[in-house]
């Protein structure tokens, strides 16, 4: 790890996301499977990045690492100055809570809970009091135009509405990054357009957004596209 720093001399140390020589290796019996091989890149605050690649390319593994759901086998990962690659499970949970806002393909809302409660969840784990939580969650739902649906449960909402609840939840704790995994994968094309428009608005408001997708139409909305293939960065280009 130490001898390969020269190859990433262009990386700025104060980047929001900083990955240096990241390896992720799975042990499959006697064989080693390298899901990521020596991946290095950085993301500045306020960027809108798409990570694209076919299935099996390693993009899901990369997303899990960016989202602090997993730790790299080798390499250095800094997010907002925190050295994530060396963290314990509980420290990672704290980073997920404070720094990452997840948006999943299948929304991942708690089906028994109301929209309001779903949005409140990250604040509960952040230790925010109930009164403040309710207010902030209501405001977040207002911001995604669901102010009149706060007490609905996920099964009483349309797909697009569910994804907007998930986006409100992702943004509630003012994370450093909004990390979306195939955010339109479960939506029809009309709703997809709406959600992508919402992402653009959020980007315009100053949020840093990373979208992981295999759809080119979704990726082309971003300002920068990283293409992953066989566990390596094949292409990294700024398009806007």
């Amino acid at each position: 790890m130490a001898n390969s720093h020269t190859g990433t001399a262009m990386v700025k140390e104060d980047s929001l996301i900083l990955m240096k020589n990241i390896w992720k290796t799975y042990q499959m019996g006697v064989e080693e499977l390298h899901a990521l091989r020596d991946v290095s890149f950085h993301v500045e605050k306020g960027d809108y990045l798409a990570i694209i690649g076919p299935s099996g390319s390693g993009k899901s593994t990369l997303m899990n690492l960016i989202g602090c759901l997993d730790s790299p086998t080798k390499g250095t990962y800094l997010i907002n100055g925190h050295l994530v690659s060396e963290m314990t499970d509980d420290e990672l949970a704290r980073i997920r809570n404070k720094e990452i806002g997840f948006v999943f393909q299948t929304f991942n809302l708690l089906s028994r809970a109301t929209a309001l409660h779903n949005v409140e969840l990250p604040l509960i784990y952040a230790g925010i009091r109930a009164g403040e939580r309710h207010e902030r969650a209501k405001a977040a739902l207002d911001a995604v135009e669901l102010g009149d649906r706060t007490l609905h449960r996920p099964n009483e909402l349309s797909g697009g509405q569910r994804q907007r609840v998930a986006i409100a939840r992702a943004l509630i704790n003012n994370p450093s990054i909004l990390l979306a995994d195939e955010p339109t994968g479960a939506l029809d094309s009309k709703t997809s357009v709406e959600i992508m428009a919402l992402f653009e608005k959020l980007h315009a408001d100053g949020n840093t957004i990373i979208v992981v997708t295999h759809e080119h139409e979704v990726a082309e909305r971003a300002h920068r596209i990283i293409t992953i293939r066989d566990g390596q960065i094949e292409n990294d280009e700024r398009i806007k």
Binding site: L69, R96, K98, L121
Partner: peptide, 16 residues
Amino acid sequence: TKEIGIRKSLGARQAD
């Protein structure tokens, strides 16, 4: 299990 995964992704620690 799914709920536990969601809660963990949102910042629930093991102790929680």
